[in-house]
């Protein structure tokens, strides 16, 4: 059975990527199961999806712990649990153009790594929901069991609901992703059907009764949400040009939905990159156009603008 995990953000078409790949595998004669996985977070927040494809009815359900292929929609996601469960046999495919061997070393990734080859490096400039189609195309080629025509049909079928323009763009990008990885065709191998119980016996405990003040979902501190780094959602970074800033002290800070810009009278405002989600409302709202948007290419780190 193939076990494939996609990682992206809300709005990058990752759910669609999984359904394109699932449909293409189904049309290629496989039994298939695919599902998106999201939590409470919204557009921009990291999410994942999975595809299982086997030769007989799939009983296994839920999250994939031991993936054969992990597909990552952009380099800013290469933090956290994205690499979890990768083994020497598995493949990591990143929608990026950093040379694969450099990336493998940098991440200390146990498996093989694929990125766009130099000739196709412009593919990483893709934005929005089209990223899903692109990643599905690349993944299809890496599996090596999906024909170009089958992929094309799956792209059109799964993206049709997004409008004819989106379907055409998705078809083109999906096929471009497929074509770009010709040299890596079929490099993902199929995992065993039953990998066995992956986990050790549980370290069960008997819960004791706690004091009710402890045992209610109450938060007794203020503003603990600041511990949540929503800056990781960002794919574009607003940067203030001090030379252009009129130091009005209110426009960007008031209009920022996330309270992520702080200003003192007469000073250039400070953007809180730990929390800025990259909506870029400030870029358009700034009267002297002192805020520019720069693409993120690395996992955003706290308060550390480059």
């Amino acid at each position: 059975m193939y076990r494939i995990r996609f990682h992206g953000r809300g709005g990058q078409g990752i759910r669609t990527a999984a359904s394109v790949l699932g449909s293409a595998l189904f049309a290629s004669g496989r039994e298939v199961q695919d599902a998106p996985r999201y939590g409470a977070e919204r557009r921009g927040a990291p999410m994942s999806a999975h595809v299982r494809a086997g030769r007989s009815v799939i009983v296994e359900r839920g999250a994939i712990a031991q993936p054969d292929l992990v597909v990552v929609a952009d380099p800013t996601l290469l933090a956290g649990g994205v690499l979890q469960g990768l083994s020497a046999q598995s493949v990591l495919f990143l929608n990026g153009s950093e040379p694969a061997d450099e990336l493998r070393t940098r991440l200390a990734c146990p498996g093989r790594v694929v990125t766009w080859p130099g000739a196709a490096r412009e593919l990483e400039e893709t934005t929005g929901v089209a990223i899903g189609a692109l990643c599905a195309g690349g993944a299809a080629r890496l599996l090596g069991v999906i024909s170009r025509t089958t992929l094309e049909q799956a792209l059109l079928a799964e993206i049709a609901g997004h409008g004819s323009g989106a379907a055409e763009a998705g078809r083109a990008l999906g096929l471009a992703g497929f074509d770009a990885l010709a040299d890596s065709a079929g490099m993902v191998g199929e995992g065993v059907d039953d990998p066995g119980a992956g986990d050790a016996p549980p370290d069960w405990v008997r819960l004791a009764l706690d004091d009710a003040s402890l045992a209610a979902p109450d938060v007794f501190r203020e503003a603990t949400s600041e511990l949540v780094q929503t800056g990781l959602w960002r794919t574009s970074r607003p940067v203030i040009d001090a030379a252009l800033c009129s130091r009005c002290s209110w426009v960007c800070t008031t209009l920022c939905p996330d309270s992520a810009i702080h200003a003192k009278a007469g000073e250039v405002p400070q953007i809180d990159y730990e929390h800025c989600k990259g909506c870029l409302v400030c870029v358009l709202a700034c009267p002297p156009h002192a805020i520019r948007a720069l693409p993120e290419r690395q996992p955003a780190t706290a308060g550390n603008p480059r």
């Binding site: 809300g10 919204r42 921009g44 503003a223 949400s225 949540v228 996330d258 309270s259 909506c279």
Partner: peptide, 9 residues
């Protein structure tokens, strides 16, 4: 405070 799960924008 920042850090909520609301959509960007």
């Amino acid at each position: 405070a920042a850090g909520t799960a609301m959509c960007a924008g």
